[in-house]
Structures are given as C-alpha cells and as structure tokens.
C-alpha cells in the first residue's frame, strides 16, 4: 500500500522561504485535508511535491512508497504514482485529451483509453463533446476541474494532490467529482492530499485527518472536527501566533497563485 511521507520540507521562491518545514504522512486510501489561509504556502506545497520549476527546494524529503520524489522530473513523479489536480489547469492548444492520456507513461500499453475517457466522463457528468477539444481549451473553470477528475480516473494514480478542488465547481458538480474521488480512495486505495481554504468540499469527501497550514508549515493536526472549527472560527488562532511578516519592498506573489485570492478572502 502507498504512503506519502513529507519530512522537513523547505522551499523558496525568488529567494524567499515559503515552505518552512512541512511534515505530513498520508497512507493509501486516506484523505488528508490541508487547510490554511491565503498566502500560507498551500499551493507552493502542491507545486513542490509535483516538481514544478520556479521553486528551490532548501531541504527535507518527499517519499512515495519509499522513493524520493525530490530531484525527479515531474513525469517521473507521475510514473511513481503521483497525480496533481491543479487549481488552474493549463490550456494546451492543439493537444487532444486522448493523445495526452495515450502518451502518458502511466497508461498501460494498449489500454482502451478512449473508452475509459467516456466512462469517466459519464461518472462525473462531463459532456462527451468536451473530450474532442484540445486539453482545457475553451473549458469553463468547472469543466476543467471535472476534466482533472476524469484524468485521475483514467490514469489511476496511487496518490493525488488536489489543489482547491472545489473552486469553480457548483454544488452538483462538486458532489459528483468529490464522490468519484472518494470512490477511488475506497476501491483503488487512492491517497489524497486535499488542499483548500474552504471546508465545503469535505461534505462530500470525508477527510481522515485535517492539518492547519500557516506560515509555510503544519501548525496543528486533528480529525474532521478541526475542519468544522476552522469554518466557524477562521485561522486567526494560528496566524496571530506567527511572527510578523518580514519587511518587504515588494510583497511576495506566488507566480502560480490565485490572482483573485484577495478578492475571495
């Protein structure tokens, strides 16, 4: 069974340390929520685990079933069983979903990819017409999120990092998508690290553990009841304890962060 173990993970962007020592352990079939306020480094954590360029790893380790992911190119991490569901899935003009999934080293030779795509689309209520389009091109935010879930269903990773799964999804879509992922945890032993700043996703995807993320690391861990507490009281208890932000000439902006984060807060 798969286990994702993150130990002492530290990373910086443009010389500024964003992850300050992350420790997390998620076993197969478990759903762990990482909840934190905007700017706490949640998306950076997702990107560093997946190996996106632009981040410098300063220390620590990320192991999937004992294999060190740090230092591997992103596609090797996927081959090792990791999947990243992005907050803002990228448009890839001219590349069809079918070609992409067929080219993936995660897809077995001779797999009936087109059939699996159709089956997965049906399960999460994604209209089949979207399967013909280039990856994410002209898809709404919600359709892109469904598309991420569809790919997860076809690629069958051991472990998924889901960055703000619920953003862009309406209530019905969220129920279908979260339900599909929960099913994968139950039937395929999928391990999930669900990064979010709202708890509404957990109405459909029950977390086994909740981690409060602030100041670039896990501040407190607990059961599902911690999510309810956060919903009621917010993050102030943890952010208040953090040292005041360093003096900066220009405020830090995560290059891959939510451009509307302040508006949503």
């Amino acid at each position: 069974m798969s286990t994702l173990v993150i130990e002492g993970l530290r990373a910086s962007v443009a010389g500024r340390e964003i992850l300050t020592g992350v420790d997390l352990e998620v076993a197969a079939g478990e759903v762990h929520a990482v909840m934190g306020p905007n700017g706490s480094g949640k998306s950076t954590l997702a990107h560093v685990i997946a190996g996106r360029s632009g981040y410098e790893v300063l220390g620590g380790s990320v192991r999937l079933d004992g294999a060190e992911l740090l230092g591997m190119p992103s596609w090797r991490r996927a081959e090792a069983g990791l999947f990243l569901a992005m907050q803002y899935p990228t448009e890839v003009p001219g590349v069809s979903l079918l070609d992409m999934l067929t080219e993936s080293v995660c897809t077995p030779e001779g797999a009936a990819v087109a059939e699996q795509m159709r089956a997965e689309a049906g399960r999460i209520g994604l209209d089949e017409q979207f399967l013909q389009r280039p990856v994410n091109v002209d898809l709404s935010g919600g359709e892109r999120k469904r598309n991420e879930a569809l790919q997860l269903g076809v690629l069958k990773p051991a472990f998924a990092v889901m960055d703000e799964l619920d953003s862009g999804l309406d209530v019905d879509a969220l129920r279908l998508v979260a339900g599909r992922i929960e099913e994968a945890t139950e039937h395929d032993g999928l391990g999930v690290l669900a990064i979010t700043h709202y708890s509404r996703v957990f109405a459909h995807l029950r977390p086994d553990a909740v981690h409060v993320f602030a100041g670039g690391r896990v501040q407190e861990s607990g059961g599902p009841e911690l999510a309810d507490e956060l919903e009621a009281d917010g993050y102030e208890r943890w952010t208040a304890a953090l040292p005041a932000p360093q003096e900066e000439a220009t405020p830090f902006t995560d290059p891959f962060g939510d451009p509307f984060a302040d508006l949503l807060a």
């Binding site: 996106r52 190119p73 596609w75 992005m86 993936s104 690629l155």
Partner: peptide
C-alpha cells in the same frame, strides 16, 4: 509542466505541444 504532471516525458511533451 501540465503534460509532464500527467506522466509524459519532457521530449514527448514538447513534441505534442509543437505538433499541436
């Protein structure tokens, strides 16, 4: 990066994007 994160080796990812 998007294609790589789906398990497509870098040269294949670039090939797909250039062809597309």
């Amino acid at each position: 990066f998007y294609l790589e994160s789906r398990g497509i080796p870098t040269p294949a990812a670039e090939r797909l994007i250039v062809a597309g």
